[in-house]
Design a protein around this nucleic acid. Structure first.
Lengths: 212, 212, 212, 212
DNA sequence: CATGAATGAGGCTTCATTCAT
DNA sequence: AATGAATGAAGCCTCATTCAT
């Protein structure tokens, strides 16, 4: 077992090494301009080795998102399962989870939303697409259930909870992407956190039935 | 004169022909996968001809967005200049303008937000980037001025008006992109209009100081 | 007749117009980088018109050389036919003729030698190549006959007169091309005339049987 | 070490393989008409492989010349450093060095002079141009120093030694190029060696102060 | 497992040339 | 005769991927 385990661990470490490199390179150059050789160099490996761990460039790119989506999922489920929270508290926890996920690895979150809103999505293998689908649906399900509870309790406006979840997701990704774009277009400093705060605040007020 | 004019008109028609083809092909395949030959075939022209009207693939892609950004600009300015509107009415007009622009040419609006939130932006010529910058800044300025007025009148919450404009823009683009993605990920029908309605509604409520 | 003649004259004038433009453009950009459109613009004509006067780009390029080769031919024949010149005087007249031809239109002479020492030569139509062949052979024949006379008179060294003619031609073209290259390589001022003087001087001394 | 060395050797062998192929193809078709695919086929490699060894077509072309220029340089320096040679002997050694370089690889020498006297020079990368500049300047410097010594000793005519070096260089390249052209124009056999002999002979006599 | 040299398909773009007006 | 828009063939080069070592 010991040997088996160590091999397993080493394999995982190697994957990490590649993922870290890929993250950097994709973030800097974008998907198309980044070459497998760039990533190999950044990982201090040969191009061939990368293919021992990832089927192809698309999968490597998508796998970055998978990890963060998984993390987001766990955090959201945690929020859903916490007992004894008021609706407002749960909404707040929701925001915090999303915020934390972003802070956990901003580059990867940006990558994920880039992937989500890009042509690359169309070229993924069905299996990978299915995995992404499952994860994102799961996240959205958790979110919408939270909203559903709030609506039931009469504190949130009576919109379809799935729509509310979609809006929250769109708002989150929209802010992340738009702040990224502004950096490129305007060469402007990054106001992501501030804007995200404002956005979540408005959203929270917007779905509440009454605002003091 | 007549001859000059006719040539001018024919040139413009040809440009349109190319733009229409490009719109279709880019929408279907995404920027990278779409080839100039695809577009030429769709336009029933030779590849060389496209280069008589557009400097290169990037410019062709971006030009789709430029046109819609210009249109958006005009619509927004119109909203800003309308006399005698209450803050709520102006916000409503704002939403309608954005909605109309989307409906005017959904494919192009989606393309525009794809461009905005993608690596392609990084590879644009400085001139083109400058043009996009100017147009998007202009749009955001109009939006933020509307918010500023509402804040001054005490009907909107006291956030920085530029931040509010960013949030609205991010929300709009986020919803458009996310609904597009859902179509790919889930193969799901397009709930864009409904989601956009909900999103705008929440946003409107969220920035109002008091909600009945 | 008058009409016919005028047409003829106008046609010739148009040809000239194109040739002048081609000369400038080819000199500035070289054969490959120069485009037919460049030349058309310089001539203030449309690309199509050029093809009414020249079969294709190669022929246009070569036709520049044809004219100067014809002129050189005339000058050389004149030298050969002048009565009562000593061998030295005839050699001097030879140099002067070559020098004059260069000064008559340096750009075209450079072009001619570029053509002569270039790949383009391989792509010319057989007819054009034949014409060039005829002209250059004629020039070299005149030169070699002058040398033959001098050898017969015992004042020039006893080398094959054709070889001497080839050497003189090679020297002339070599100096012109090398001074051109130096301008590009070193960004250096043009010492063509001085170098040509030295070259002709050395050549003259070199073929003389005795040098004072 | 052994493995490193073998790789090194194989890399060099591959470079040679490409250079040999390029030499043939460029000689036959000229720079413009030769395609990278032609060269790849001739080398029995894929087009992509060539780019692992040469940055682009220009560099490949120029690299042919660089090698021969380096060789010429070495030979010329050797002539300059030989002790105890009379001026005449040194001139003779100079001729022999140039002759040898030509014989070492005629195709490449012809290529080199084609490059030198062509538009291609204008399109070279600055680094490559600098390298060529450095090498040719070095060669010419050695030549002119030999002439300077002879002038000082009173056995050569009192012209500027740099001008003499230019003339010799021009003569060499002029003869090589002109004999090549004659093959194309006249389909004539190659008299290069004979003509070069005559040319050097005349040059030698021409720069000597007194000829017996 | 790791390597990295080699592959070769394919994209963007240019430009000589044509031809309907 | 002149135009100039349109053509489309063809070239350079990149880079994801493979495979012999």
């Amino acid at each position: 077992m010991g040997i088996q385990e160590r091999k397993e661990r080493e394999r995982e470490r190697r994957r990490q090494q590649i993922i870290v490199a890929a993250k950097r390179v994709f973030s800097e150059k974008g998907f198309t301009k980044a070459t497998m050789e760039d990533i190999a160099k950044e990982a201090e490996l040969s191009p061939g080795t990368i293919y021992l761990y990832f089927k192809n460039k698309d999968e490597l790119y998508a796998s970055l998102s998978l990890r963060i989506l998984q993390y987001l999922n766990i955090r959201l489920e945690h929020v859903a399962q916490q007992k004894g929270l008021s609706n407002d508290e749960r909404i707040k926890a929701l925001k915090e989870a999303m915020f934390d996920v972003y802070n956990f690895d901003p580059l990867v979150v940006i990558n994920m939303f880039h992937l989500q809103s890009s042509e690359t999505l169309k070229n993924l293998s069905p299996e990978l697409l299915a995995e992404i689908k499952q994860l994102s649906q799961s996240s959205l399900k958790v979110i919408s259930e939270i909203f559903a509870a709030g609506i039931q309790d009469g504190v949130f406006i009576e919109k379809h909870p799935v729509a509310l979840a979609d809006v929250l997701w769109a708002l989150f990704s929209g802010v992340v992407l738009w702040e990224e774009s502004k950096k490129i277009i305007n060469g402007e400093k990054d106001y992501l956190k501030e804007t995200l705060e404002v956005a979540f605040d408005i959203f929270g007020r917007g779905i509440s039935k009454s605002v003091a």
